[in-house]
Simulated assay, not measured.
Amino acid sequence: MRLYLASTSPARRSLLAQSGIEPVLVAPGVDEDAAAADAEATLGRALSGPELVSLLALAKAHAVADRSVAGHPVDGLVFGGDSAFEVAGRLYGKPHDPAVARARWREMLAAGSGVLWSGHCVVDRRRDRVAPNGAEVRVPPAAPSSSGRELRCGPLLGADGLEVRGDHVVAVDSARLTFAEDMDPDEIDAYVATDEPLEVAGAFTIDGRAAAYISRIDGAPSAVVGLSLPMLRRMLRVGFDVTWHDLWSTL
């Protein structure tokens, strides 16, 4: 079964590959800042961490789900993900600028720890297939949500929740990270100078140079990379009756 990754993130692709899954990478082309601003304007307030990451994960997955890839319609499951880091009630996205990254590191170290919110969305775009008896069957979409909420119309769900609706499943996972207490300014400057933290949520990666600066992770480590493997497995089972090994690449 094919899994499309609505992302060009090397970290997410590597995480799936290490798990035996070779996804098809497709850039979603979503204006994240505009999507968040529109949702906040509708609500009249700022989005929470879980709301923000689930909103953007949903937008990315749907941006790819109805697109043609290499001249062919998408045929499989589409995953979209997004992350944000929260410290003392403040959300940190990608810093982009070295000065911003250094300031964020100082704030994160002063707080000592923070929560990484990881949003997930899986959209079912499997096409007609043949059953064992030779009959053509259509894989049904995910079961409708009992809550009646329309997930595409705004902020989605709370912390560590999972929502099934129509053809997609949305979920949020989280992990608390504790930083090394003795990290000094020279180490911050050296890390920021690598440019690694500039385009990642929270200005750090645990699968790169920042791993030595994080002393503890409470939660799924893969969620900090941007794709919680335990949560994705649960989403597939609950929403689509798909097992984890159904996605393993054949040798």
Rank of each mutant, 00 (worst) to 15 (best):
A101L: 09
A101H: 06
A101V: 04
A103M: 15
A103T: 08
E107M: 10
E107G: 12
M108S: 09
A110G: 15
A110W: 15
A111I: 09
G112A: 07
G114C: 08
V115L: 13
L116A: 14
L116Q: 12
W117Q: 14
S118K: 01
G119Q: 01
H120F: 05
C121E: 05
C121P: 03
V122K: 03
V123Y: 02
R125N: 00
R126H: 01
G134A: 07
G134C: 04
V137W: 15
R138A: 10
V139H: 14
V139L: 12
V139A: 15
P140M: 08
P144K: 04
P144V: 02
S146H: 03
S147F: 05
R149G: 09
L151D: 00
R152V: 06
C153S: 15
C153M: 11
G154D: 00
G158Q: 06
G158V: 02
A159G: 12
D160T: 06
G161W: 14
L162G: 07
R165F: 07
H168N: 11
V169K: 05
V170H: 08
D173T: 07
A175K: 00
L177E: 05
F179H: 15
E181K: 12
D182N: 14
M183T: 15
D184Y: 07
D184S: 03
D186A: 14
D186Y: 07
D186N: 06
D189I: 00
D189Y: 08
A190D: 05
A193V: 03
E196D: 06
P197D: 09
L198S: 07
E199Q: 05
E199L: 08
G202A: 03
T205R: 09
G208K: 08
G208V: 03
R209A: 15
A212C: 12
S215F: 08
D218A: 11
D218K: 09
G226V: 04
G226S: 06
L229H: 01
L229A: 05
M231I: 05
L232Y: 02
L232R: 02
R233L: 04
R233T: 03
M235G: 01
R237L: 13
G239W: 00
G239R: 01
